[in-house]
Design a protein around this nucleic acid. Structure first.
Lengths: 154, 154
DNA sequence: CAGAATAATTTAACATGTTAAGTAAATAAT
DNA sequence: ATTATTTACTTAACATGTTAAATTATTCTG
């Protein structure tokens, strides 16, 4: 845990001490625990993320969903097609703005989420047992602060 | 910054309070600052990451490089082809193990890194000015601890 | 109200992510 | 030593990431 000094000049930091790579490696390390579950149930990471956000938010338009799930609009278009074909989401037009696509989870989609929830929570507990739930809480707090500080509207 | 209680049962957390999504959103927020620079110089995020790791490690075999850069082997195969065509990396065979591909930065690749370093460091400083370098240091420390705790060899 | 500008989404094209299968070299087991 | 297994990498196929252009609906301007 040796701290590197802040770069005074214009040098690059060790990759381990840069936010983009450190955050990526951390996420990969965490996802390694979840991927077997997703693969077992034939959903991609992105499809699962879209469904998790819909479960949380209810009916939303495509742009907002894309932002929340960190998925670009063109990817979301294809993902929605897949999820709709599988009966997991329902798509409609916004009656007050014909440009917008509204999306929500279907009953089947909601059931699918709830079917995987116990296994997902169990994996999360396994991770918590290795890191400590307190430390995870701290990390999530720090990330919330970072997101607030970097949000574009500031 | 209201803390959620640890899930006692089998419910899913708010997406904001899950490591996979929180880490992803944080990384996207950070990368939004770097992407214009990379686009301006016609390198993808992954190509740049490969070069950053090579700059740090010197000559390494493809498997190790893939792990360090969080890139899967098939993607790396294609990325190496692109970077080699552009003259940024040099590829050779390991004489003591004919299966292994060895890779290192070329002189041009090294120059390219150094050419972008100042702008990259400046962007990093801009981010630091919004979050605080101390807080970033704490976050990076927490991530190092997480990576150590989740490393498979434990 | 008509035409211009803007906005939300989709399509297209290429790079990468991901899994499975294939190839070649090294190692292990008879 | 020959065969089988393992290892490192590549190829193939499809999903997603990414940018630019196209499409359709809305809003702005005159």
């Amino acid at each position: 845990m040796t701290k590197q000094p802040t770069r005074a000049g214009m040098e690059l930091s060790q990759t381990q001490r840069t936010l983009p790579i450190a955050l990526l490696r951390a996420r990969e390390a965490v996802m390694d625990y979840f991927r077997p579950l997703l693969a077992e149930h034939d959903v991609t990471e992105q499809q699962w993320r879209v469904m998790r956000v819909l479960d949380e938010l209810g009916t939303v338009d495509a742009s907002f969903l894309a932002r929340q799930a960190c998925i670009l609009a063109p990817s979301l278009t294809r993902i929605m097609r897949t999820l709709e074909a599988r009966g997991f989401v329902e798509v409609s037009r916004d009656s007050s703005d014909g440009r917008r696509t509204l999306v929500c989870l279907s009953k089947e989609g909601s059931q699918f989420i709830r079917k995987l929830a116990p296994a997902s929570a169990k994996i999360y507990q396994d991770i918590e047992s290795k890191i400590g739930s307190e430390r995870i809480g701290t990390l999530l707090d720090e990330i919330e602060i970072l997101l607030e500080a970097l949000s574009p509207e500031k």
